[in-house]
Design a protein around this nucleic acid. Structure first.
Lengths: 171, 171
DNA sequence: GTCTATAATTTGATAGAC
DNA sequence: GTCTATCAAATTATAGAC
């Protein structure tokens, strides 16, 4: 009942490594070892590394969309809190970067499909906040809020101080 | 008079590549080709890749310190403008990431010396703003400003829209 | 200081048996 | 679908001649 397909377990293992070391931070052999199969089996499910990376980002974005839900139901403050909590979970629960924050930082060196999928994640969050804010929102622009969250994750993790996230995000 | 030492040219070439692809985004051979020497000559100046990466970050941080100057001479607004312009130059003039924003994002997978040097860059900027603000600063905390700048760089570059930087950074 | 040469390992990827 | 076996290329790094 709780068994996960090999394909999903490959994505799980790849995501853990990618969210620590980026696109160069995982290899077919490492993932295969994590899952307990051979690297050729990983290639069966994802022919190239770009395929794997693209699926990784798209699944990550779908999960974010599910987590955030429908923005129209929320007040601006509720929407901000929801997005903030998503990044707080990455910091505290997962102890990992936002996959797209990391891929976005190295986007110049990524295969174009992965770069495009990463951009879609950012658009999703920005559209979500924009819809919740409505046309007359007087506060911080959606992009500014997202930027602060991605940057706060980087600072808090590099300096090893989760309170830096809260200080940066407080309003 | 304008000739640069091989050592400096190696650092220049490495920085260009590292600010696009991160720590995994440059190799001894690529840098050697960029400079016009052999990879063993790069190893002569920087025995290991960790040495090279550490020197890269320390030089980057020293240049930032020189650019920013002494915070005590500045009003809070002047200090913010100065830091903001430094990141705007990375986006527009250099068309590259902040080296430490990128290394910070992948800091989990970096050699400890490089991770520590990256943390020092963040501390430098935070201390700079803190000194300019004084004890009674009522506005955004220094870490929040730095986080927003790093994140805005990532967003603007991944979405290919420099105006996103200005929108995020406007106050 | 820079070179040639090379070692040892890892990488993404493929062919073909089962 | 997963395996064994293998490939070609790239990686960090070192030894030793000049």
């Amino acid at each position: 009942m709780t068994d996960t397909s090999i394909r999903d377990r490959i994505l799980d293992a790849a995501e853990i490594r990618a969210r620590r070391g980026g696109y160069g931070g995982f290899s077919f052999r490492e993932i295969a070892d994590d899952v307990g199969v051979k690297s050729s089996s990983v290639h069966y499910h994802f022919p190239t590394k770009a395929d794997l990376g693209e699926c990784l980002v798209k699944r990550y974005t779908e999960r974010a969309a599910d987590y955030l839900g429908v923005a129209a139901k929320l007040t601006p403050d509720q929407a901000i809190q929801r997005v903030t909590q998503m990044f707080r979970d990455a910091l505290i629960k997962d102890d990992k970067m936002c996959l797209c924050g990391l891929f976005g930082a190295e986007s110049d060196a990524l295969p174009p499909e992965i770069r495009a999928a990463t951009a879609d994640f950012f658009r999703l969050v920005i559209v979500y906040l924009t819809q919740a804010f409505g046309p007359d929102w007087p506060g911080e622009p959606p992009a500014a809020i997202l930027a602060k969250l991605e940057g706060a994750l980087i600072l808090a993790r590099t300096l090893g101080d989760p309170s830096l996230f809260e200080v940066s995000v407080r309003r």
